[in-house]
């Protein structure tokens, strides 16, 4: 049986056991990076933020008192990093560019440029990009990552009631956007792939 997060944290804190922290990194890295990629729309930026979050979690492990779950504590660090990064002018420009790419569609996009950030269904991407920052973070944590509302509130540093509101509102907005998309898609002509304009060949249906 695999040890629980709290047992690994205790080991890493008490015995300064690097292997215990390594297990925590391996256990949470992919999901955390996935969340960050969907949150900021840039895989490289998401990896930088995740790396910084793990570094800070390692350095500040003694500050984790076990009041909440380890993952909500880790995601809280990552979310703060994301906000800090987004505040910086350079990162904000990258973010804007990434989000603009998300909403602009995939026409003319090379497979290299596709990458992890845009592996998502185009409809879903557009619907997600239309959400506010907190709405996006809340719905990604609660609906995609399987966080409880309490955990999400702890990770995002917002009141529980607000998280419920954000999730509900985000679902409504996304549902409306996806319904609208479904109604408009059959009417729009299919773009023809030409040799000079490679497409990623993916068709997503929600």
């Amino acid at each position: 049986m695999e040890p629980a997060d709290i047992e690994l944290v205790t080991l890493a804190k008490a015995a300064q056991d690097e292997r215990a922290f390594a297990v925590l990194v391996r256990r949470h890295q992919a999901r955390l990076r996935g969340f960050l990629i969907r949150l900021c729309g840039d895989a490289a930026l998401a990896d930088d933020i995740a790396q910084e979050a793990f570094m800070k979690a390692h350095a500040g492990l003694s500050g984790f008192n076990g009041g909440g779950s380890f993952r909500s504590w880790l995601y809280a660090i990552a979310y703060r990093e994301f906000l800090q990064d987004a505040r910086k002018a350079k990162a904000a420009a990258r973010l804007e560019e990434a989000l603009r790419k998300e909403t602009a569609g995939h026409q003319g996009q090379t497979p290299e440029a596709g990458g992890l950030a845009s592996s998502m269904s185009l409809d879903l991407q557009q619907a997600l990009a239309g959400l506010g920052e907190m709405e996006r973070a809340s719905i990604l944590l609660c609906d995609a990552a399987g966080f409880s509302h309490t955990e999400a509130a702890s990770a995002l540093g917002a009141p529980l009631g607000s998280i419920k509101t954000y999730v509900g509102r985000a679902r409504d907005k996304m549902r409306a956007a996806l319904t609208e998309e479904t109604q408009t898609v059959p009417a729009s002509p299919k773009p023809e792939a030409t040799p000079s304009q490679p497409t990623n060949g993916k068709q997503y249906v929600l």
Binding site: Q29, A30, R31, R33, G34, F35, I37, R38, L116, S119, M120, S121, L124, A127, I139, L140, D143, A144, A145, G146, R171, M174, R175, L178, L206
Partner: peptide
């Protein structure tokens, strides 16, 4: 909920790759 199902499936696929 189709939105929840779609988001969950997307994150699962992305996580598998990561």
């Amino acid at each position: 909920d189709p939105v929840e199902t779609a988001l969950k499936a997307d994150l699962e696929a992305l996580t598998d790759r990561l």
